Computed example of a mutant assay.
Amino acid sequence: MNVIWIVLVVLALVVILSSFVTVQQGNIAVTTIFGKYNRVLFPGLNWKIPIIEKVFKRVSIQNRSVELEFQAITIDQANVYFKAMLLYAVWNQEEETLKNVAFKFMDERSFMQALVRTIEGSIRGFVATKRQAEVLGLRKDITEHVKEQIDKTLEEWGFHLLDLQMNDITFDEVIMKSMAQVVASNNLKAAAENEGQALLITKTKAAEADGNAIKIAAEAERQAAQLRGMGVALFREEVAKGMSMAAKEMQQANLDTSVILFSMWTEAIKHFAENSKGNVIFLDGSSEGMDHTMKQMMGMNKLMDSSKK
């Protein structure tokens, strides 16, 4: 009799203890009665009907991630290799959503397989309409396309796609080498063009500087020549005036002008000898020649005096 009571007490304790269920934070438990959905249990200590109510599945409501590696083919038959990271989570904590998460798939492996294949198929379908040269610049477009295509499907399963990162997009080795060569040739072309532009600018500036130097030198020479001409003209004018005045004074004093002519002639010959630098100069040293020169100077002086008046 005592043994029976002991057994009954033990069974009662087992039943009582099995009536309580602990659900960890970040999880929600789905229960069934005789294999049919009953309710959801939230984090903490929960009570359930002993024996007949069972915890069918514990659903994580935390964010989950998975890495994907797969291959796609472009419209021009180029192989593209993708490495992506998928971030997803349960859509919300509503009862209908949790029922879908718990009962849509037989197990977690089946769900992951369906999720990965769905995303791969969406990306492959998108890449199949693009050329190989376009794919690298379409990371954002691919992500937006995938989200648009599978968000509704995932919602039916009770999940939501939070993010899809295309971590790496590569091609066959031959294509990668050709792309690298294209980039290198474009860089060399750009460098050559920049160098040519720089050389052109340098040459242009040098030519402009040379042209300005020539203009400045020509202007300076022109001004110097003008000043030299003015100096020579003034010198000749003063010489003519001096000789004319000297000749007039000698004529008024009834003196022979040959004396002054001779004196000026000798001074001129002395000046030629000192500054001729070895050049040969032929002069008419006769008295008639000197007299003729003096008359010309006196006539020039009269013309200049009359023009000033």
Score class of each variant (00 low, 15 high):
L11P: 03
R58F: 03
E144D: 11
T170D: 03
L98I: 05
F103H: 05
G285Y: 08
A198I: 13
M304Q: 11
D168W: 02
K130W: 03
E238W: 04
E238F: 09
I281C: 06
A180L: 12
K309H: 08
P50Q: 06
G196L: 13
V3D: 15
K83R: 06
T74D: 07
V7N: 06
R131L: 14
Q113D: 09
L8Y: 06
S19F: 06
I269E: 13
I142H: 00
T153Y: 01
D284C: 09
F42C: 00
A128N: 11
S19C: 12
N275H: 14
P43A: 08
E193L: 13
M243F: 10
V59Y: 03
N254R: 10
Y81Q: 03
P50H: 06
E94I: 02
A273I: 10
K99Q: 12
F111P: 01
V174P: 00
K83L: 02
N186Q: 15
S286T: 15
Q25K: 14
L261E: 07
E108Q: 07
Q71A: 01
G44W: 07
L154P: 05
K48I: 12
L154E: 02
K308Y: 06
V127L: 04
L162T: 05
M179G: 02
I281R: 11
S276K: 14
I28H: 03
E274Y: 08
W157E: 01
K104C: 06
